[in-house]
Structure formats: C-alpha cells, structure tokens
Design a protein around this nucleic acid. Structure first.
Lengths: 177, 177
DNA sequence: GAAATTACGTCAATAGTACTGACATAATCT
DNA sequence: AGATTATGTCAGTACTATTGACGTAATTTC
C-alpha cells in the first residue's frame, strides 16, 4: 500500500519555498486566520442548530435592514435555492421577518427582529474581540492599513457593495448605487 | 406569506452599527476577502474534479514534504475519515505519494510528486498575485504588518505550527519540535 | 512474549452547504 | 395581452465534514 504503483511519480523531498515569488506565508496565514475567525461564532450557532450560512444571512440582514431577497443573493453570491432553506429557518425561528416591498409588492424586504439582532451581536462579539486582540498594540494607522489590505483583496467589481461603515456610510441607505 | 405569524417579532429598521464597539467593517471585509481569495484556485480545481479540501492537503504536503497522516490531520483539524477520500484521490491521480516512515513503519510520510508540486504552484499563483496586487503600493513594513495581523488572528495554541517561511525556517525540517 | 497502544485504513450513516434544472405564482412592465 | 421580474419550491446531485465502529500492522509496555 505504501508502495508506489509502477507509473507513480517520484517523491519531491524539498519544501515548496517562496520560489517564483509565491507568497506562501500570507496564503497560509489567511487560511489559519479565517478558520479560527469563523470558529468562534460556529460554536454559538451549534446551540441553535444553525450553521455558517445562517450567520451570513443574519449578518447582512442586520447590516442592511430592508434588503430584498435578490439583493441578499447578490451580496452572498449564492443561488436562491441555497438561501431558501436557511432563510426559512431564520424566519420560522423568529430571527428575521419579511415585509412586502412598498414600491414593488413582489419584493420581500428582510428585517431582523429583536431576537435576530441579539443573535447577530452575540455572533459578532467574539469575532470583534479577536480582531481587537490582534490589533492590540496597534494604532489607528495600522487598523486602517489592515482594512485597506482586506478591501484590496476583494474583487474590484464587488467593492461597491461594501460599507466600510466607519469611513463611508455617507447617507446612503443601501441599494442606491 | 409576507404577514408575520401572531407571535412574530417586530422588524428592526435600523442598521446594526459599530455600537458595543463591534468591528463590523473588518468582520465583513474578512468574509468578502476570503471568499474571493479562495475563488481563484476553486476554478482551477474544478477542472480536476477537486475541491477546496484537495487544495489544502496539496498545499501542506508541498509545504512540509514528509509529514505524516497524523500531522496533516492535526494541521487541518479534520478527522481521518474526512481526509481519507481526499487523500486517496490525490494519491490515485499521482499528485501525492506515500512512503513508509523510516523510524516507525506504521507511519505514512506524504510527499508531492512533480505533478502535485506543479498543481500546488498553479493554485497558489493567482492567490499570490492577488496578495501582491493588494500590497501594490505598500512597502515591506506594511507587508509585515499584515502578516502580524493575520498571525495574531490565529489561535495562540496553533501559532507554533505555522512556518512564516520568509522569517523563520531556521533549519528545522518539519517535525522536530 | 503477551497485552496494550498507536498509526492508519475503511465501512456506514448523517449533516450542512452548495449546485443545476424545472416549474409555479403574483406583480409589474411593455 | 404578453413578456418579464421577484420570489418560492420541488427534485436530484456534489462536496466537505461529522461520529461511531471495526480491522490490521507495528511499536511500546509490562
């Protein structure tokens, strides 16, 4: 079983390095960082029988109350079939409510309830604590730099969707590009 | 359907803000950044019928050639059952080979083949390009700062496992802690 | 040397998140 | 009136992950 089959390639014994200018350090750090970053809320979600998808929906419904299903799909970049189950559960458990769109009655505007707001905050709290700890002995300049870096990592077409909040938020509600 | 059931909570119409000192900006940016970061290799992997799990295994086998199955499980924090299918496929497709451990013949040391090395590089290339683009007009100081931030986001117990590579790599092969 | 432990592999069942494709309904637009 | 849009839903599939159980070979312990 350990033996290589006749045509198998020979083992390479040297570690891949920063040859070709590949940034393995940050690639790897990003993986570890994101995994641990998401592990905090995952634990809380498990108590509710929810998963990471519920977190994402809850997050954006709280960040942009009144967004429509289509807008949510666009932000999350998933299909409506994927959203359906998750959103239904959040509605059934009274974390999110749907209201008929005022202009267009086909639309469903999504709003958090007090319960949904509380859960969103509870999920964000450990993540925020982790961020603060990571920036512990950093000043505002470093914070901004990290924000800039992360924003620059996002596909340019999508940056418009992002409210940095602290900086922007210049009187736009959400969908008025 | 749009109507709330009798006991449903009332909609909250105000966006969640940085109240309670929650760092929503970075939380959200981290989500978008990581999603786009992983989307690059995902496209390549699809051509091989592989998924993200294959990428992770391939990455660490290339970064630490000769690591054992147990070490790989420890780094990835998954179960051996989860690893089994993915690793088997990588071995069957001649991207990874197993060698019997020299000291302990129960162990399987994992090595990339030339094919596996090439794929690992191909997957890392667009990610590295994205990182470079994000750090475009940044100096070495900013790069270090981003690295420090990401490292600080990782659970402290796990930081030992991380080779920053550019910095460390002080003559240790991999498993000689 | 026998017993316990370790490293690995594998079978079976389940869960969560995603996908494509198809079809239905109501509302709005042309 | 007919086309398009926004949403919902059904069915089938894929990938990644889980827990639990069992098997085998190699090493360690007594």
């Amino acid at each position: 079983m350990t033996d290589k089959s006749p045509a198998a390639g020979k083992p390479i014994r040297t570690a891949i390095t920063s040859e070709d200018g590949i940034d393995f350090a940050i690639i790897e750090l990003f993986f570890f960082a994101y995994r641990d970053f998401t592990s905090d809320p995952d634990q809380i979600l498990a108590d509710y029988g929810f998963g990471r998808a519920h977190h994402r929906v809850l997050h954006f419904v709280n960040r942009r109350p009144g967004l429509t299903v289509a807008e949510l799909l666009d932000v999350l970049k998933i299909t409506k079939q994927s959203l359906a189950r998750v959103l239904k559960q959040l509605i059934d458990t009274d974390h999110v409510v749907q209201l008929q769109g005022p202009r267009d009655r086909r639309q469903r505007e999504l709003y958090p309830t007090a319960k949904g707001r509380a859960l969103a905050l509870a999920l964000a709290r450990p993540q925020s604590r982790r961020i603060h700890a990571a920036l512990e002995d950093s000043g505002a300049a470093e914070r901004t730099l990290v924000e800039r870096f992360l924003e620059a990592m996002v596909n340019p077409e999508l940056r418009a969707q992002i409210d940095v909040g602290s900086a922007k938020m210049s009187g736009k509600s959400h969908g008025e590009h």
